[in-house]
């Protein structure tokens, strides 16, 4: 069975999934959170994320509100319906209080407006990455 990790470098990485059809956003999130110890996986659609979730449980999911296959809020609701209690953060380029409120009601821990997402993302995700690393230690 699994061997007990003795060295921090042999531990499986903490996975953070970012779902955004814009590859630039995926890359910039990877650049931002990678150095903090996360293995950032980028997906363009809700469907790709849902497929991935059958094999992995990320520590955190970052979702753009406008996805090609379903609204980001619907994805949040779907995650909840499946009983997945993964901290989720929504990104949006639209300045819409209604979207923000819906996202928070659907269980998001934060709703961050593009394009200036870096600081808020680090504030929310860094502690999650830390906790994820510790719980596996």
């Amino acid at each position: 069975m699994a061997s007990r990790p003795t060295d921090i470098h042999t531990q499986p990485p903490v996975i953070v999934c970012v779902v955004d059809p814009d590859p630039l956003v995926q890359r910039s999130v990877a650049r931002l959170l990678g150095p903090l110890g996360a293995a950032v996986e980028g997906y363009a659609t809700a469907g790709e994320l849902l497929a991935r979730l059958q094999f992995a449980v990320p520590a955190c999911i970052i979702v753009e509100n406008r996805l090609p296959d379903m609204p980001g809020i619907a994805l949040l609701q779907e995650l909840r319906a499946r009983g997945l209690q993964i901290p989720t953060i929504m990104l949006s380029g639209d300045d819409d209080v209604r979207d923000a409120v819906s996202a928070m009601r659907a269980g998001a821990i934060d709703f961050i407006e593009k394009p200036f997402i870096d600081r808020a993302l680090v504030t929310q995700v860094a502690p999650i990455i830390d906790a994820g690393g510790r719980s596996r230690g």
Binding site: S92, D95, D96, V97, R98, A100, V101, M104, R105, I109, D110, F111, E113
Partner: peptide, 23 residues
């Protein structure tokens, strides 16, 4: 009651238990 550009404040208010918003 919120106006345009109040998303960050609305999010904070939600995190602290507000029941609803009207823009």
């Amino acid at each position: 009651i919120t106006g345009h550009g109040d998303v960050p404040m609305a999010v904070e208010a939600m995190q602290h238990g507000a029941v609803d918003f009207i823009q």
